[in-house]
Nucleic acid binder design. Structure first.
Lengths: 217, 217
DNA sequence: ACACTATTCCAAGGATGATTGGAGAACCAT
DNA sequence: ATGGTTCTCCAATCATCCTTGGAATAGTGT
């Protein structure tokens, strides 16, 4: 066996990435950042964290080089360092979901009943044939940072007030951030309660990007 | 935004997997376990850890369901819970290597000069055309748990004494555990010092399995 | 220069994790 | 049963991380 100190040093370096992924708060921040660049303040509010707490977590993500920053005036925008980081994040969640029974129960508690979902291929096919209206129920800024071509931005907040914009005789497909985002679940429940035919995309923008499907801006 | 407690609970569950990957020691244990099932004692010795320390780390890996155990008499064997875990582990290392400059320096310090390596495709092609002898320089037990078809087991320990077995007029390709395993580097250095023509596979058994290439047992 | 905004840095408390030795549990052999 | 082997559990110490408020920094606007 080679040099023990050098080996420890190498594996400790790998562990830096693991450590960055070892906090639920940081994973939630990554989930938000994966949707597009955001300021510290916006991230803190979205994740319901104190500003300094959010900043500290963002620093650890930054020190692991999973995110990079850009300054614009007094604001600092955080974004993912690359698609490989998004892939790692997505795989972590998939492995956790497949391996840990507690993830499944926590997921069901958070997202609610798992209404039957549409796959990415089905969504593409429905859009092409004009059989469905696709709505992006994320906040408008995330839609602006990139969305599924042909999708209309209807943030969940505004959905109840904007029902009239959606054709009543056509199926609505809602999507949001990713496989564990609650927005599309809430949207489908709201639409169904209003008598509309609505389903959700099985995952969301994160997985859409990773599948290298076209993204509109 | 939905139920904050439920959302925190979900992301904390994801973080359980991150926490399991947040220690260099545990990553080293995973690296070993990925080669095939091993007992606690064997893992502790290979990773140069105290028995109780190794056991404690293995417990955290087990509680994250990244590894599973099997009892055989007084011995307990640990193995990976699935290929997805190996894929996550490999991706973590790739991301770390691509993103963290310190990983590159630590890697070079541990592995030594990066001799030019052979890709998996090149190796397959050389074996088919009989232009190379492939040697597996991992410990014999790891070879026994699965190896590249056609490879000969020559553990690094025995390599110096078994030079005569290797054809002097043919190129030797050495491989070991994975992209960050030192054994094949040492083997190539030893063989080159003996005047042989030797190269190493760019990665190793971990990546070979993940590429779903044939594995012999 | 001065006030103002956005963010990071610093320090301190509490919480969580790592390591170790020794006791305990599961199993096998005699 | 007894003793031996292998591993886990427990308890204690030490180190590291999380969180928070307040101070410091970088930039903008007047």
């Amino acid at each position: 066996m080679g040099d023990r100190d050098a080996k420890n040093a190498l594996f400790d370096q790998f562990a830096r990435v693991g450590k960055a992924l070892a906090s639920g708060k940081r994973l939630e921040l990554l989930d938000l950042i994966a949707q597009g660049e955001r300021t510290v303040d916006a991230l803190a509010k979205s994740a319901e964290l104190g500003l300094t707490t959010a900043s500290a977590h963002l620093q650890t993500l930054k020190q692991a080089n999973l995110v990079v920053t850009r300054r614009e005036g007094t604001k600092i925008f955080y974004r993912l360092a690359g698609d490989d980081v998004a892939a790692l994040f997505a795989l972590l969640r998939t492995v956790a979901d497949d391996r840990l029974p507690d993830v499944r129960t926590a997921r069901e508690a958070y997202l609610g009943d798992d209404t039957d979902a549409v796959s990415r291929d089905e969504l593409l096919e429905r859009v092409r044939s004009g059989r469905a209206t696709v709505i992006d129920v994320r906040p408008a800024e995330e839609y602006a940072a990139g969305h599924i071509p042909g999708a209309v931005s209807v943030p969940l907040d505004e959905l109840a007030d904007r029902l009239a914009e959606l054709p009543a005789d056509q199926e609505v497909v809602a999507y949001c951030r990713g496989a564990y985002c609650v927005l599309s679940h809430d949207a489908v429940r709201l639409l169904t309660a209003q008598g509309r035919t609505a389903r959700r995309l099985a995952d969301g923008m994160l997985e859409w990007r990773l599948a290298e499907l076209p993204v509109a801006v």
